[in-house]
């Protein structure tokens, strides 16, 4: 390319008047090995621009699709659970047979407790023996003077 034209383009470039096409031409020119010595510093500039174009973003993006918890379905499930519970509860009514069984068991238990009470009354006099034992305890005190005498 003619040097003259490049110089003109550069002037336009510095005034911010070049189009993208013209800027591409400049970039092309300065990507050559040899450029006019008085334009050397532009080479660094354009090289820097094209070099910077290659930098990429390498970090991984943590894109998570949050599945929103649907509370509607929770309430539906709760209602179903309640209804099932009521349904099974109704089945458990107390029948006549159950009542009879209950009374029978009650009378048996009463019988057992009555006989037990009788037994305890009979054994009650044993407390009298305990009292007598306490009264006899003072005999030990008599032992003390006897031992002294022996000495």
């Amino acid at each position: 390319m003619v040097l003259n034209k490049i110089e003109k383009l550069i002037e336009k470039y510095e005034n911010g008047e070049t189009t993208l096409k013209e800027e591409a031409q400049l970039k092309d020119y300065f990507s050559q090995e040899t450029v006019a010595p008085h334009l050397q510093h532009y080479k660094a500039m354009f090289n820097y621009f094209s070099f910077n174009q290659q930098e990429t973003f390498t970090k991984q993006l943590p894109l998570k699709t949050k599945t929103k918890f649907n509370y509607k379905w929770l309430s539906v499930a709760a209602v179903i659970a309640l209804m099932v519970g009521f349904y099974f509860n109704q089945n458990e009514t107390i029948t006549e047979q159950d009542k009879q069984d209950y009374e029978k068991a009650k009378s048996y238990l009463q019988l057992v407790s009555q006989t037990l009470n009788k037994g305890t009354k009979q054994v009650e006099y044993l407390t009298a023996i305990n009292q007598a034992g306490k009264q006899v305890n003072y005999l030990k005190e008599m032992n003390n003077p006897i031992e002294r005498i022996y000495k």
């Binding site: 470039y13 510095e14 005034n15 911010g16 008047e17 050397q40 510093h41 532009y42 660094a44 500039m45």
Partner: peptide, 19 residues
């Protein structure tokens, strides 16, 4: 355009200075 022109000129001036 104005900002661009200023920036380009500054870069060039600084570069010629260091060169």
């Amino acid at each position: 355009r104005v900002a661009l022109s200023r920036a380009r000129k500054t870069i060039r001036e600084q570069l010629t200075k260091t060169h």
